[in-house]
């Protein structure tokens, strides 16, 4: 039986092999699914955003400024979902020591930070003409700014150690600690009085948004989610290849010396 050799290895050895596993299988699989994910993302997001920008009706009181919603709201959702996926990757790194989890966390954080930045800036661009202020320190805006700094903190922390493993571990702990911010963001508009309005789309009631606006928003959000996944997957592929390059270069130096 061909499997006997590998199964008879001691446990410590399999863990090592697991950690530096041949990346070929991940790269082959992800290389197959990345193009369709990217294509779906581009199609859905384009349709949603063009629909929202040119064809969806204006709002009865906000007029055309409401169109900022079609970029702001998906960015806001993905800022939170991105952090949730960062926390999941961190948990699977700490608990199951999954070999890809650390790299995934490192690659999720910058994409999440970028989407959070989009959310903050478009929110500001929406707030100025509607509310009359670029920024107010209410609970919603402050908690999303904290989310942005959590992402930035993670980006800095994983690169702050000479030993990458220690950086991964510190980053994973930060990511899990920061998870408490997610319910605070979600419920900030209910727990405190804020300038930001409560959610229009809830699990419990009818959406307080006309269907003619809900459809383009749903498409933009779905396209954004596929886009987020495609960006993370592409970066993860690059990171896996770069890790293999480092390992091979090190091996060459060792055997050459």
């Amino acid at each position: 039986m061909g499997a006997v050799n590998t199964t008879s290895l001691p446990a410590g050895n399999t863990r090592n092999l697991h950690r530096f596993a041949n990346p070929g299988q991940f790269l082959r699989l992800s290389g197959k699914i990345l193009p369709p994910i990217a294509a779906i993302s581009i199609i859905l997001a384009s349709v949603g955003l063009i629909w929202g920008l040119f064809f969806a009706p204006s709002d009865w009181q906000q007029h055309d400024a409401v169109r900022i919603m079609y970029v702001h709201v998906p960015a806001a959702w993905l800022a939170s979902f991105g952090y949730f996926s960062l926390a999941l990757a961190s948990a699977s790194s700490l608990i199951w020591r999954h070999p890809l989890a650390d790299l995934a966390a490192v690659e999720i954080a910058p994409v999440g930070a970028a989407f959070t930045a989009i959310c903050l800036v478009t929110g500001s661009l929406w707030g100025k003409p509607m509310w009359g202020a670029w920024w107010v320190w209410d609970a919603r805006m402050t908690s999303v700014l904290v989310l942005f700094f959590l992402y930035l903190g993670h980006i800095a922390l994983v690169r702050a150690f000479d030993d990458p493993q220690r950086g991964y571990r510190a980053g994973a702990i930060l990511a899990l600690v920061g998870v408490v911010n997610l319910p605070i963001i979600k419920f900030s508009v209910e727990w405190w009085n804020t300038l930001h309005q409560p959610a229009s789309i809830t699990l419990t009631g009818a959406p307080t948004m006309a269907p003619s606006m809900l459809w383009p928003l749903a498409l933009a959000a779905l396209g954004g989610s596929f886009g987020f996944s495609a960006l993370v997957l592409a970066r993860l592929r690059a990171a896996v290849m770069e890790r293999r390059i480092r390992a091979l270069t090190l091996a060459q130096i060792r055997t050459g010396a």
Binding site: L49, A75, L231, R235
Partner: peptide, 30 residues
């Protein structure tokens, strides 16, 4: 409010393109 709308969409497009091109270049270099 056209300037605000244009700035929002422009910024979003720019950031996503920047991320996408960056990831693509990184992959092909590797």
């Amino acid at each position: 409010h056209l300037p605000y709308i244009a700035a929002s969409y422009g910024l979003t497009l720019a950031v996503v393109l920047w991320l996408g091109i960056g990831a693509w270049q990184r992959t092909s270099r590797a």
